[in-house]
Design a binder for these strands. Sequence first.
DNA 1: TTGAAAGCGGTACCAT
DNA 2: ATGGTACCGCTTTCAA
Lengths: 329, 329
Amino acid sequence: MVTIKDVALAAKVSVATVSRVLNKTGYVHEDTKTRVLKAMEQLNYHPNEVARSLYKRESRLIGLLLPDITNPFFPQLARGVEDEIHQNGFRLIFGNSDENLDKELDYLQTFKQNHVVGVISATNDPGSANYKHLSMPIVFLDRTGEHAPSVFADGREGGRIAALEIIQRNSKRITLMKGPGHLQTARDRFNGALEILSGADVDFHVMSTETFSFREAQKRAEELFSLYPETDGVIASNDIVATAVLHEALKRKINVPDDLQIIGFDDIPQSELLFPSLSTIRQPAYEMGKEAAKLLLALMKNENIEQSAVQMPVTFIERQTTRKVDDNE
Amino acid sequence: MVTIKDVALAAKVSVATVSRVLNKTGYVHEDTKTRVLKAMEQLNYHPNEVARSLYKRESRLIGLLLPDITNPFFPQLARGVEDEIHQNGFRLIFGNSDENLDKELDYLQTFKQNHVVGVISATNDPGSANYKHLSMPIVFLDRTGEHAPSVFADGREGGRIAALEIIQRNSKRITLMKGPGHLQTARDRFNGALEILSGADVDFHVMSTETFSFREAQKRAEELFSLYPETDGVIASNDIVATAVLHEALKRKINVPDDLQIIGFDDIPQSELLFPSLSTIRQPAYEMGKEAAKLLLALMKNENIEQSAVQMPVTFIERQTTRKVDDNE
DNA sequence: TTGAAAGCGGTACCAT
DNA sequence: ATGGTACCGCTTTCAA
C-alpha cells in the first residue's frame, strides 16, 4: 500500500506538505504542489481513510438503519439516502434492525466504533434509550419525531385523502383497515381516515391487521369478505394489505372497481404492476431518503437547524382500483 | 469516549494487559483478567474499531456492491449477505453501482481506503480491470464467474425447465423473450430455453428486450400481442417482463392461463402477489446472498478453497399463470 | 505474568 | 512556504 510517506519521498518534501496539498490547507508553493500532485498520480496514491478517521475522530461514513430492506418500501428510501450522501463524498454502513431494539443498539454501537459522522434510522421507537445519549447527529426517517430531527410523510393527511377520494367516488359501506398499532405512521393514516369517515354519510367498520405481512393480510381479507360481504370500498393500511384485498376480491370474482374500490398506502413499485393497478396514497420514498440525508448533512455542519422536522406531502395516485369521479357531481 | 487507557487506569494495569484480555491473546492472570473485565463493564468500554483497523490493516467491514437495491431482486441478496456476515461480527459498507464501471471502481477504491476485508459484488463485468488487481478476497454474486469465486443460479437449467414446463402444459406457439444481451445470466436462461424449444415440436419466436425496465417491457408486450396474436405461451426473461406481459394480456382480456401461459424468472416477492399469481423459475436469492457471504468468509480464512464457484439450483414455482399438467399424458 | 514503547498512516501545531 | 513531531487508540514485540 502506498502511503503519504512514499509520496513525500517521491516529491522530495515532508509528509506535512503532502498532507497540506491533500487537504488544501495552509500555504504551499505552486511548484511543490505540482510536484506532490504528480507524485500522487504516479504512485496512484489514495489516502488511508482509517488513519484519517483515527486522528480526526470522524470518518466519511454514515450509518443507515432500516427495519428490513426486504420490505419493498425501504429500498427506495435507502437509494435516496445513498444518492444524496454519495454526492457529498460519504459512504454508507448499512444494517437491518428487524424492529428489534437490541439489534438496533448493536448497530448503533458499531456505527460509533467505526466513527460514523451521523446516522439515519427508520426505527419504530425514536424515543428509545438507544438514541438518548447518541453523541452524533441523527435523523429519523419515516418516523414522526417529536423533538428530534426527522423526515416523514404526512400520514394523517394521507388517511384523510384516501377517505375523501373513496367517498367522492361513491363507496357507501367502507372497511377501514387499521395497521399495526405500534407504528406511529400506521396510526396516523388510520386516524386521518377515521376523521373523515366519522364525519361523512357512510357506513364503515374497522378491521385490524397486526403486521404488514402478506400472509396475515390474506387471512384478514378472507374474513373481510365473509364477515362484511356488503363492503364496497376498502381503505387499506398499506399497499401490501391492499394487494391482499385485491387478490381476494378477484378470487371471489368481485368486480373492481365497479363493485368494490380499494385504496392502498405507500405506492410501492409493484402497486403499479398489479392488474388492475392499485390506486394508492403515495409517499415519496426516494425523496424522503434524499431529504433525510440532506438534513443530516446540514446537521453535521451546523448545530442549529431551524426546520428539523420535515414533513413530506402525500398524493393520491389514481389508478384502476378506484372509479373515475363523476364530473356532474 | 472511553479508551483502552481509561480501562487500564481503572484496572490498575497497563494498556498492553487490557489489550490482551480484549483479544484473548497471551498470558494474563485470572484475577487481573477479572479486574479488567469489570473495569470495561463499569466504564462501558467498546474498543475503537478504527484504531484497531489502522494497526492491523484490516477492519471488520465487508463491501457490498449491487447494481441497484431498488430492483426487487437485490434486496433479498443483500439481506442474505447481511444476515450471514452479521453473525460473524462483520458489518456492511454498501453501494449501488448502476452497472456503471466508474462508480464501481469508485466504490472499490473507498472500500479499500476503509480497510474492508473482502467484497461481494454483483457486477456485470467480473472481468473488468477493476477487479484484476484487487488486493483482497472477492466473490461475485449473481454472475457466472469463469475462474473467480462466485455464487450464481443455474440459469441455463432454469431456461430449460421453463421451456419444458410450458411445453408439457401444451403451449404450441411460444414467444421466448430474450433479456439484455450484456447480462450473462440473461443469456444463460435464454440459451437454456432455446435449447429445449429448438428440439421440441412447437412453433416459437424470439423477442428481445434491452433492459429489464417495466416501461420497456410494456411496449414489447404490446408488440408481442399485435405481431403474434396466436401466441399461447410466453417464457419471459424475468418476472418484471412477465408481469408486463400478464398485464397486457389481461388488458386484452386474454384468458390466462387457459389461452395463454406465462412463465417468469427470478421469483421476486411480488410475483406471488399478482393475480393470477405468476408461475416462475425461482432463484434462491436470499440463500445466494448467504452462500456468497459464507464463501467470502471462507476465502478470508483460507487461501485455497476447493469449490469456489457455487451454482445454486433453480426450481419451477407453479402458480396460476400456467395450467395444471394433465395427469393422463 | 506484566509493562514500555514502537508503529499503523495520517493531521496539525509549532518552529524556522 | 516548509519540515519536525506529537498524537489519534490500539496491537504486538521485547524485556523484565
